[in-house]
Design a protein around this nucleic acid. Structure first.
Lengths: 191, 191
DNA sequence: GTCTATATGCGGATAGAC
DNA sequence: GTCTATCCGCATATAGAC
């Protein structure tokens, strides 16, 4: 792997583990096995390198989500697949955690890929919910955009609960609870 | 206000704004209008002061939540009151945000009040859901603990979505979505 | 491109005067 | 109790040699 590549990958790991404020150039260099000169040759500084890292992480998360959301199955099944997909729960969301970083939120450039990614997932979920409504799998009284926000928030908040307790249990409980609320009525019945 | 008081209050504010890693003793002292000596006279160091601040914030959040959850109304109404209570959404949750702080999670002592508080709210919510089931307001197929986790996760995740987008809209949307899913069936009807 | 040297200031804390 | 002085090392970056 090239030096810039190793720098970006090391930064991605550290941003996930420690956030932007908690990540120092020195730690990045040690992990990447590079010297100071390399980093400042390829990147303008910490914010510039972080931007490259965040963009890649955001891209990757979108791809992962798309893989599940575009999969086979009914709308409910695809949402279930999204909620139950394998996750390293205690590590948290590599994108969502950045929203708690004051320096990320303060920078329009750093915040943009975060916002865009979560928004993209939300829109995809909203479309699937609307699809489910058309098929009668979800009640007509539900609002796709709202339910999408609920689904994504449950995931993001699930990470918070899990990390607080030091165990993934609360994440899984939240997901099961949401799935029970979303559980499709039998075909042709109405509320 | 006494000097230790001012130190604790300043620390609480900074922990909320910038997290543990992003908060320096120097910043605390400036905000509190105190000198280095005062801080190290009253507290053993940054972790000790942070512990006092976190405990107080946790206590305060429990009290606020209790005020709403113990209020009047049906179980659904109390949950709605909890979800819709006034919040400074873009600031995030002063307790939940600490779960993204690596140094807080790494310290059993600092993590404890965070864990305890979120767990306490979860248990209270679970009890209210069970109450609602007994009264036929919620379906018997729902699990109190799971729904409680979903509710709390929706709130915690709502903060994430709102901060990502720079606007409270997504928080509110997630709450409305959840309320529509929880919406009680008319009395005496069954699923 | 990568390395080592160097720089300024902050993070976190101790010592001891008042 | 509070202040100032002082400490060591890290955070972040620049300069210039190889």
């Amino acid at each position: 792997m090239s030096t810039p590549e190793r720098l970006i990958e090391s930064t991605r790991e550290l941003l996930w583990e420690r956030g932007y404020v908690g990540t120092s150039p020195k730690a990045i260099l040690e992990r990447a096995g590079a010297g100071q000169g390399s980093m400042y040759h390829h990147f303008k500084g910490k914010p510039d390198l972080a931007l490259a890292a965040i963009r890649r992480t955001a891209e990757e998360l979108r791809a992962t989500a798309a893989g599940v959301l575009d999969g086979p199955g009914t709308p409910y099944e695809r949402i279930e697949a999204y909620l139950r997909r394998e996750r390293d729960v205690l590590r948290g969301c590599p994108v969502g955690r950045l929203t708690m970083d004051p320096d990320v939120i303060a920078s329009a450039e750093l915040r943009e890929p975060v916002d865009e990614t979560l928004d993209w997932i939300r829109e995809r979920l909203a479309g699937i919910v609307e699809e489910g409504k058309e098929q009668g799998q979800f009640g007509a009284e539900l609002d796709g955009e709202e339910i999408a926000a609920t689904i994504l928030a449950t995931v993001q908040g699930g990470y918070v609960l899990a990390r607080a307790s030091g165990s993934p249990g609360a994440f899984d409980a939240g997901v099961r609870g949401l799935l029970s609320l979303l559980s499709p009525r039998s075909p042709m019945s109405s509320r």
